[in-house]
Write a protein that binds this DNA or RNA. Structure first.
Ligand SMILES: NC(=O)c1ccc[n+]([C@@H]2O[C@H](COP(=O)([O-])OP(=O)(O)OC[C@H]3O[C@@H](n4cnc5c(N)ncnc54)[C@H](O)[C@@H]3O)[C@@H](O)[C@H]2O)c1
Ligand SMILES: NC(=O)c1ccc[n+]([C@@H]2O[C@H](COP(=O)([O-])OP(=O)(O)OC[C@H]3O[C@@H](n4cnc5c(N)ncnc54)[C@H](O)[C@@H]3O)[C@@H](O)[C@H]2O)c1
Lengths: 213, 213
DNA sequence: CTTTTCTTGTGATTATTTTCACATTAACAG
DNA sequence: CTGTTAATGTGAAAATAATCACAAGAAAAG
């Protein structure tokens, strides 16, 4: 089984690039084209494909449509993936309003809030009281959830979600969630991402091209 | 020079954990404590410290205050880091409103928008016309910027930012930005992060503890 | 039909990151 | 003061990931 997250992320990027290449009129692509589009080497592209048994034509490259379909199947984009959001603050709202998920077969079916004043069943994505979450997860067999609650509430929220059947979590709270091995947790810590940029900028040697600016 | 991003992210995590441990009354910590808090091994903690010349006491561990200070210095948290945001839509607004950056010495000093209707010099963080951005960057020696504009505008925005002196970018647009080697780009692609969770959930074998749910 | 050209697919190699294993030493107990 | 214990610090080893190098085969050219 492939456990390399970077590899999966690259597959997603290839898929996105393919989409752009198709709109440019490409019918076939070479590993070079994808490599350039994504910013990796062509060997990396072929190696990634090789891991998933994706084959092309010697000298003929890959058919855009066939490749797209294979990638979509691998990435679960052949069917709609239902996702819930917990915590309708700044981040939760941004995600819920974002229209870009639809075309990726990701559907935010409901949001859950502790603050009753923010709840409403009339919005495009219903905002429900967090107490209803476990039942909702069970009834709708939801497997993926996004945590956008304050850090102090995050672990408890995760426990409830997992208890109800959630198997994968995208977590925006700046803490390391603890859970059993069979649940996937992907932590997106924006402060850390920014801090890492800051570190590298402060550390990087000043070169000719940046010195005078 | 350390180029391992994961290592820098771990340093940030250690720093955050230290803060929590201190509020719990810890004066000294062992590599074990930090390892547990962050979810890595204690060897990893010591190895990371070793790379930066951080030393503790045999049998005595590390003094919380001294360690915090060293980490803060390495991570550039000994002084305020000024950052700008470009694109005041869903994500840009969420980041600009977020109060958690302050305590991390990260200050969003201004936001820039193409839509004049969204601009205002009276908000807590001024929202300025994007035309003013290059001048602002130069005048205030801004080195770090966040891109939260639609994908089609992202590369152009990056070019303008870099041209004016920006050295590091946190990019939320779902495209691979191209730039010279001496600029740090950290791409946060939320769709990809979610897709990777979806992939692993769909792929992971169903175990005893998850089967019945 | 034969040769040349171009691109895939992958084993081998190299590089990077993590883990192991243990020498070292400070603190403590007796 | 001496032995024991519990931690650090770091080379060596292992695991993981990326790159290299090239055989193989399809398409195009001659
Ligand atoms: N906004 C950002 O730019 C940003 C940046 C970095 C990290 N984060 C992190 O992301 C998370 C969300 O940030 P935010 O700015 O959206 O916060 P926020 O305070 O705006 O929103 C949190 C929301 O969660 C709700 N909530 C609280 N407890 C809950 C519970 N138990 N169940 C359901 N809902 C609950 C609150 O009512 C609120 O609406 C936080 O952990 C924050 O640290 C946010
Ligand atoms: N919101 C999300 O949850 C989410 C999720 C995944 C990816 N993204 C990506 O993040 C980026 C921002 O997303 P969003 O939802 O905030 O979009 P949005 O459309 O809400 O906001 C974009 C903002 O940028 C402004 N803008 C456009 N061109 C500009 C320019 N050249 N200079 C300055 N400002 C400009 C627009 O006026 C708008 O206010 C997009 O690239 C999107 O694909 C967002």
């Amino acid at each position: 089984m492939i456990t390399n997250k970077n590899c999966i992320i690259r597959l997603s990027r290839y898929k996105n690039s393919l989409h752009r290449l198709k709109t440019l009129g490409f019918v076939k692509v070479f590993s070079d084209n994808l490599a350039d589009a994504v910013g990796v080497t062509s060997e990396q592209v072929r190696k990634d494909f090789s891991l998933f048994g994706i084959t092309g034509n010697k000298r003929g490259g890959y058919t855009v449509d066939a490749l797209t379909e294979k990638l979509n199947t691998i990435l679960g984009k052949d069917r709609v993936q239902n996702v819930i959001v917990v915590g309708l603050g700044n981040i939760g709202t941004a995600l819920t309003k974002y229209r870009g998920f639809e075309k990726e077969c990701i559907k935010i079916t409901a949001a859950f809030e502790a603050d009753a004043a923010k709840c409403s069943r009339k919005t495009a994505v219903p905002i429900l009281p967090v107490e209803e979450m476990p039942e909702y997860i069970r009834k709708n067999s939801i497997k993926i959830g996004i945590i956008a609650v304050p850090d102090v509430a995050a672990q408890q929220t995760a426990d409830i979600m997992i208890g109800a059947g959630i198997r994968g979590i995208l977590n925006f709270a700046p803490i390391s969630l603890r859970c059993s091995e069979d649940v996937v947790i992907n932590n997106v810590n924006l402060e850390l991402e920014l801090e890492s940029v800051i570190y590298f900028v402060n550390t990087m040697p000043v070169t000719e091209s940046t010195a005078s600016k």
